[in-house]
Simulated scan of single mutants.
Amino acid sequence: MAKRILIVEDDPVISDAVARGLRADGFVVTVTGDGEQGLVEATEGVFDVIVLDIMLPMMSGYEVCRRLRAAGSPTPILMLTAKDTEHDEANALDLGADDYLTKPFSFVVLRARLRALLRRVPAEHSTTVAVGNLVLDSETFRCSRGGKQIVLTAREFALLEFLMRNQGRIVSKGMIAEYVWDAELDIDSNVVEVYIGYLRRKIDKPFQREDIETIRGVGYRFASERLARR
């Protein structure tokens, strides 16, 4: 599955160039240009790495990083800045950033730093995710519920993983399309609903569950605590 990267950078020249390069490398990239929206994206979405500028409108990268770490987010953060002092680097690392790169930088170096961060897989982003007795392993591409194996297609697996990693949160059709279909899906289509139906028939109905909730007019939520109505 393609790795997802969030870029929070207010310079469109830099963000566009980095995004194009990363997409060419096969990454799924989301870009936003201010700190407040970056915090929203980082909190509500699922990303493997966050590239975070320090000098941002609305909210500084320092504050975004501080809030993410205070909330318990384990996502690796690579901070960017036009500054070049040991004090700035120390501040970023003290707040929980995993790496630091000073502008101007080489895309080759940025890519190498990102790949290094991706090799450091935190426990929360391990290959296995479990909610109740439902278990997914993205390394072996296996799904089971109560020990019973469930066969999923690649799209179904990606959709279920996204829902499970966002357990308890409402995720919109657009968020699902961006993660599962790399934003290439027309979110006005009914493809998301169709795949939600596929999943329900495989992971819910045979086990008398209703874990995948529809929030009308908003999106979906993986609840994991609801038994199916009889």
Rank of each mutant, 00 (worst) to 15 (best):
Phe141Ile: 11
Ser73Ala: 07
Glu178Ser: 14
Met79Arg: 00
Val51Pro: 03
Ala71Gln: 15
Ala24Thr: 10
Val8Leu: 01
Ala112His: 13
Ile212Trp: 03
Val151Ser: 10
Gly45Pro: 08
Gly35Trp: 05
Gly35Cys: 02
Arg201Ile: 00
Tyr62Gly: 00
Asp11Met: 09
Ile176His: 01
Gly132Trp: 03
Pro76Asn: 02
Glu225Pro: 02
Ser126Gly: 15
Thr102Gln: 05
Ser138Asp: 08
Asp99Ala: 13
Arg221Thr: 13
Gly26Ala: 07
Gly33Asp: 06
Thr153Ala: 07
Ile54Asp: 00
Ile14Glu: 00
Ile176Gln: 01
Ala90Lys: 13
Asn166Met: 11
Ile187Val: 15
Arg67Met: 12
Phe105Arg: 10
Arg169Met: 09
Ala177Asn: 04
Thr85Phe: 00
Ala42Gln: 06
Lys103Trp: 10
Ala112Lys: 14
Pro104Thr: 08
Glu86Val: 10
Gly33Thr: 10
Ala2Arg: 14
Tyr62Met: 01
Glu41Pro: 04
Arg230Met: 13
Ala2Gln: 14
Met59Leu: 15
Gly96Glu: 03
Val28Ser: 10
Leu56Glu: 00
Thr32Leu: 00
Gly45Leu: 02
Gly61Thr: 07
Arg145Gln: 08
Pro74Asn: 00
Asn133Val: 10
Arg20Gly: 09
Asp211His: 15
Asp88Glu: 06
Ala97Asn: 06
Arg113Ala: 07
Asp188Ala: 09
Val135Trp: 00
Glu36Val: 14
Met59Asp: 05
Ile50Gly: 01
Ser126Phe: 03
Val13His: 08
Phe141Lys: 14
Ala154Glu: 10
Arg20Val: 15
Leu39Met: 05
Ile176Phe: 05
Ser189Gln: 06
Asp25Asn: 06
Pro122Val: 12
Arg230Ser: 15
Asp25Gln: 11
Asp11Gly: 01
Ala24Glu: 14
Phe47Gly: 01
Glu210Pro: 04
Ser138Tyr: 05
Ala223Arg: 15
Gly219Glu: 09
Gly147Leu: 02
Arg66Gly: 02
Gly146Leu: 03
Gly26Asp: 06
Ile50Glu: 00
Gly197Val: 11
Asp182Val: 13
Asp211Lys: 06
Ala158Lys: 10
Ala24Ile: 12
Arg209Pro: 04
Arg120Leu: 15
Arg4Cys: 09
Glu161Ala: 14
Val13Ser: 07
Arg23Ser: 08
Asp84Tyr: 01
Met79Gly: 00
Thr153Ile: 01
Asp182Glu: 06
Lys103Tyr: 12
Leu163Met: 12
Ala24Phe: 10
Ile212Lys: 04
Ile150Lys: 08
Glu193Ser: 12
Val46Asn: 04
Asp211Ala: 11
Leu152Gln: 02
Lys173Ala: 11
Ser60Leu: 05
Lys148Arg: 15
Arg165Pro: 13
Arg221Glu: 09
Val46Gln: 01
Leu159Tyr: 03
Thr140Pro: 03
Pro104Tyr: 07
Arg226Ser: 14
Ala71Glu: 13
Gly35Lys: 06
Arg69Ala: 02
Gly35Arg: 04
Arg226Tyr: 12
Asp48Leu: 10
Leu118His: 11
Val40Ser: 07
Ile212Pro: 04
Leu101Arg: 08
Val28Trp: 01
